[in-house]
């Protein structure tokens, strides 16, 4: 252990001791209070509240309502962070060419067949979690990551070639991902556009009727609430996340030689 490590260890220890002291000395109040924070109570009371619709998201699930409606902006930019990172990985490995027929054995026949049977089940479970995001725990990101891990699993269990041959080439994934992202973007400004066309005022990320903004998304589909924009957000987000994560994984797992020939030596200068 050299001096630098000791210094780092000391400062970290100091930090965590301070942190623990603040928490334990009541800096945040009791760790699990009996009384809910007022803001949280407001969220729970207004998340599905047909009697006071101007503050409501019309979604039974408070977390999804906060994620996509009350704090929709956060989530929009969260999606863009994911977008940036995935495009960033594509930038790092830019110019690669997918090769098929290189081989790759995959795992044993038993695992392959089992995963094959699992595929539709995981897919539908992901879709179910995504479209019920405003009714039961879950949502677009959860459903999307289900599907993404399925695609990762397929590319591991079979081989990269297999996935590419079945039509999930990176350019197609990119197209699907763009559709998903543009869907998210369109949903976020849909009511604003409607308001501009019909000449009434409306907000960005508006969902239900608000003070001074009388446009609204459809609150019901058949016999269950849709949460207005939440259903659309969830579906598009699931699409974007699933394709985006698997795209990043496929690009990351490209073989060395596929990237090597794409290197543009001399593109940079001292």
């Amino acid at each position: 252990m050299n001096a630098r490590e000791v210094a780092i260890a000391t400062s970290i220890t100091l930090m965590i001791v301070l942190l623990a002291y603040v928490i334990e000395a009541g800096g945040l109040g009791p760790i699990a209070p009996e009384k809910l924070r007022e803001l949280a109570a407001s969220y729970i009371i207004s998340t599905y509240n047909p009697w006071n619709i101007t503050h409501s998201a019309q979604s039974l699930e408070a977390v999804t309502a906060i994620v996509w409606d009350y704090r929709g902006l956060d989530t929009f930019f969260e999606t863009s962070v994911l977008f940036i990172s995935i495009v960033g990985v594509a930038l790092l490995f830019r110019g690669y060419r997918e090769k098929t027929g290189v081989g790759g054995r995959g795992l044993s026949e038993i695992v392959k067949t089992s995963t094959k049977i699992l595929a539709p089940l995981i897919l539908i479970a992901g879709i179910s979690i995504a479209i019920h995001g405003h009714l039961t725990p879950g949502g677009g990101f959860q459903g999307g990551s289900f599907i993404a891990v399925l695609l990762v699993l397929l590319s591991v269990v079979f081989s990269l070639d297999f996935v590419v041959e079945r039509g999930l080439s990176t350019s197609r994934l990119l197209t699907l991902r763009s559709i998903g992202l543009m869907g998210v973007f369109a949903t976020s400004i849909a009511l604003l556009l409607v308001g501009l066309v019909t000449g009434v005022s409306a907000y960005v990320f508006q969902n239900m009727v608000r003070e001074g903004a009388p446009v609204s998304m459809p609150p019901w589909f058949l016999d269950r609430p849709t949460g207005g924009t939440l259903l659309f957000f969830n579906v598009f987000e699931a699409l974007a996340v699933a394709t985006g994560l698997s795209l990043a994984f496929i690009v990351l797992s490209l073989r060395r030689e596929e990237v090597e020939e794409a290197l543009e030596r001399g593109e940079w200068y001292e």
């Binding site: 290189v102 790759g104 054995r105 081989s159 990269l160 994984f249 496929i250 073989r255």
Partner: peptide, 8 residues
């Protein structure tokens, strides 16, 4: 463990 490789 099997192939010392992933995704291919």
């Amino acid at each position: 463990l099997e192939a010392r490789e992933m995704g291919g």
